[in-house]
Design a protein around this nucleic acid. Structure first.
Lengths: 206, 206
DNA sequence: TCATTAACGGGACTACAGTCCCTTTAGTGC
DNA sequence: GCACTAAAGGGACTGTAGTCCCGTTAATGA
């Protein structure tokens, strides 16, 4: 139950130089390994080898594959993506959809996202980290919906979180479930559908 | 490479009684184990024990956890769900959304779906089986969109597959990514959004 | 610059998932 | 009902992921 009881949470009390360097190298290596083999074949010994770090160190600091993914997601959540502002809801949502789509179609990022989502189905800590990651990403794009409401493009009371999530959802559905292609047409359709639904008041919260 | 070369594909040449009984028991047990522990903790020895079947049998016929999930998905695809027909697109889509939502929120089915999706991220056979599963489910509900087009409720050229997928997508996004609640309000919002987007012509294929 | 100690690293050890070989059981066709 | 054999079952074996112990390295603070 009590986590890290034997080792008193390494990486906390002496965060100078080496500790941070090891963490960065391991998280980088973990991302590579996840993108290449997926979550279920994530081998901590392999990650240690790639990172040029002792096997024991990885087991000591992260304990399980899922714990490593959870920490990787914390790191990923801090890497903010650039957001455009066009003055039109549809253009903003399309820019978001294309960005998400390019990410999921990317040869490294696509498999990586599949892997972290698989990890989140297996471990509550990873799931919590994944939820925080998406909450962060969605919050970054919420302003364009708020501005559309302010401009009168959308009914007041529209939930920005719901609208932004509605853009991503069909793209993730393609990635994980249907296998339909993740091309620009799919992105534009996702943006158009979310915008149309928002204009019709489908995301007005009670 | 060549699958089952050593054992000449058991279950094929003599499908009478016992073979089918063993398959049914193992798939049932696999579903239980997946729902309880998730894909990454799926232990074929445990499945064999639950099914009251020899450990060797499970390894011989399905070889890997992912192979077992792939076969389970083939079985799940044959289990058709009842579809209502109300004469109104929104009502039909809402019925679909609520059905999907109840399934994903169900204490057994929800974790089971998480697990098979995790398996599909790890194995191409499981992924192909999952795609067939969703293609089957979506095709079952496509007629209600076709009828809406015929009634003039939707623009002609609307892609039924896209509309039905648009209903499910936000619910799966909640299950796997955002962690937002899977309640009836979420289902109704998903249906309303898909219907509004479809009416606006967002799913007209080129 | 030097003592202190947090964190890293190597390598032996352990436990268990997955394989293999051989025996037993039960569908199939006469 | 009986011979034939496909498929299931038991149990020993093996490879490897994960643990543990203890020596080494390098941040920290005086």
């Amino acid at each position: 139950m009590e986590q890290g009881s034997r080792y008193d949470q390494p990486g906390q009390t002496r965060p100078g130089g080496r500790t941070a360097r090891v963490r960065a190298a391991v998280l980088r290596a973990a991302g590579d390994a996840l993108a290449e083999h997926g979550f279920d074949r994530l081998d901590l010994a392999d990650v240690a080898r790639r990172a040029g770090v002792g096997r024991t160190t990885v087991y000591r600091r992260w304990a399980t594959p899922a714990g490593l993914v959870a920490d990787l997601l914390v790191e990923m959540a801090t890497e903010s993506l650039p957001r455009t502002e066009s003055g039109s809801l549809l253009d903003d949502l399309r820019a978001n959809a294309r960005l998400v789509c390019r990410t999921l179609a990317d040869p490294r990022q696509g498999p990586l996202f599949k892997a972290v989502i698989a990890a989140a189905t297996a471990d509550e800590d990873a799931a919590a980290a994944l939820r925080r990651f998406y909450a962060t990403r969605i919050a970054e794009w919420a302003p364009c919906v708020e501005q559309a409401v302010a401009r009168g493009e959308l009914p007041s009371g529209t939930d920005p979180h719901e609208v932004v999530a509605a853009v991503s959802a069909p793209l993730y559905y393609r990635l994980l479930a249907s296998g339909d292609p993740l091309d620009e047409a799919a992105a534009d359709r996702a943006a158009a559908a979310a915008a149309a639904a928002a204009r019709a008041g489908a995301f007005v919260s009670p």
